[in-house]
Amino acid sequence: MKIIPPEILLEAYAQGIFPMAHEGEIQWFSPEKRGLIPLDDRFHIPHGLAKTLRREPFDIRWNSAFREVMLGCAEREETWIDETILESYCRLHQLGFAHSVECWDADGLQGGLYGVSLPGVFFGESMFSRKTDASKIALVALVRTLRENGTVLLDTQWMTSHLSQFGGYELSRKAYHSALKSALAGHVPRANPSGNGMTDF
């Protein structure tokens, strides 16, 4: 199976570029408007979701089913996750540069998200839900851990109505590249007190 070499993927992310599969080909993107989720007090948890979180409907796990999360994200009529993308990111996961956040219950894996990490930045790739609010709960868990790790940027590529409810916002390509460069250059690694095994990105 052909994969995108990890060094090419990581260099692309460091330059604000990411791949997607389209009609059997890998295409590379750098959107004019870049979506981000704030990691400060601008991050907003909708009232209904806050009530659900208090019930703790899912067991949150990290990196226990990375491939399965990717396959869950690909379970839709149109997907940009083909076999090349799948195997390329699974390789990044093996190398410690890609991570999954998962929501489990007694019935199994019910949702989650995955993304790529570089020092100071997490690049969210995709999310999915099989039960109500699973992907949203995974996002809240991700934000909490990124805050603990001292991560500066949570990149979502494009902004959607689903993400805007969390306080998501957009930057121009130029402003994003400046913020990305600053985050990568100025990140100071910190120990992670959350106990989930992820010491730093």
Rank of each mutant, 00 (worst) to 15 (best):
K2N: 02
K2E: 05
P5R: 08
P6V: 07
L9T: 01
L10H: 07
A14W: 01
P19M: 15
P19N: 14
H22P: 00
G24N: 09
I26A: 04
R34P: 00
F43L: 10
I45K: 05
L49T: 12
L53C: 12
L53W: 07
E56T: 13
P57E: 13
F58E: 02
D59M: 05
R61Q: 12
R61E: 09
W62E: 02
S64Y: 02
S64C: 07
F66E: 03
F66Q: 02
V69F: 01
G72K: 00
E75I: 04
R76K: 15
E77C: 06
T79V: 13
E87W: 00
C90V: 12
Q94C: 01
F97D: 04
C103L: 06
Q110R: 14
G111R: 02
G112V: 14
G112P: 00
G112H: 05
G120F: 04
F123C: 13
S126P: 12
S126D: 01
M127L: 13
F128G: 05
T132V: 14
D133G: 02
K136L: 12
K136S: 09
R147N: 08
N149R: 13
T151V: 14
V152R: 14
V152F: 11
L153W: 08
L153D: 08
L153T: 07
Q157N: 10
Q157W: 12
L163T: 12
Q165N: 03
F166P: 05
G167M: 09
G168K: 11
G168H: 11
E170F: 02
L171H: 02
Y176Q: 11
L184Q: 15
P189F: 03
G197Y: 04
T199W: 04
